[in-house]
């Protein structure tokens, strides 16, 4: 891990990378039952892909689908990290394998499933433009959180 400004700077940078989970948690909140502690615990299961998969498209989330898609991902991710830490050197430069193309394609397929009507298409386009515009001027992570604010057009727009 390369660090420029010590632990506070690293903590800030890391938290900003995860800031999008704030928006995802707000979206998920009405779908979670129980008291604050139980909801806080359930909120921990949010990762990008399971959040998108559990989204029913009507403003609610299937929380069991959320938990069920996070658990195997977490197991696979931990397993992958261990394998990478132990055997990573043997693979050499993993960039040449092209594996970094996997996750954008996966998210693209989730995105296409969300494009149900003209409003969602415009919001997706606007979110992409906001994110790209902010890339040069904000720390990584902020462009994605800012893009989620585009969804606020839902306050005045009716159709999805």
């Amino acid at each position: 891990m390369g660090v420029g400004g010590g632990i506070p700077a690293a903590l800030t940078a890391g938290s900003l990378m995860n800031a999008r989970f704030l928006a995802m948690g707000i979206a998920l909140a009405p779908s979670l039952p129980g008291g604050p502690l139980k909801r806080a615990a359930q909120g921990q299961t949010v990762v990008d892909s399971s959040w998108a998969l559990a989204n029913r498209g009507d403003g609610t989330f299937d929380r069991w689908l959320l938990f069920g898609t996070t658990v195997p991902q977490y197991a696979a991710w931990t397993f992958g990290s261990v394998v990478g830490a132990v055997f990573g050197d043997a693979l050499g430069d993993t960039e040449r394998l092209g594996l970094d193309a996997i996750y954008p394609v996966f998210f693209l397929s989730l995105l296409f499933a969300e494009l149900r009507g003209p409003t969602s298409r415009r919001v997706a386009l606007a979110g992409a433009l906001v994110a790209l515009a902010l890339v040069p001027v904000t720390p990584p992570g902020v462009p994605i959180l800012a893009a989620s604010a585009v969804a606020l057009v839902g306050v005045v727009r009716r159709s999805g």
Binding site: T60, S120, R121, S148, G154, G160
Partner: peptide
Amino acid sequence: WSSRVIVLMAPALLSALVVTAV
């Protein structure tokens, strides 16, 4: 109106994730 905002968060966030990754 909150459910309409929540519905639109998925396209906004997913497209931002894709373009920043790519």
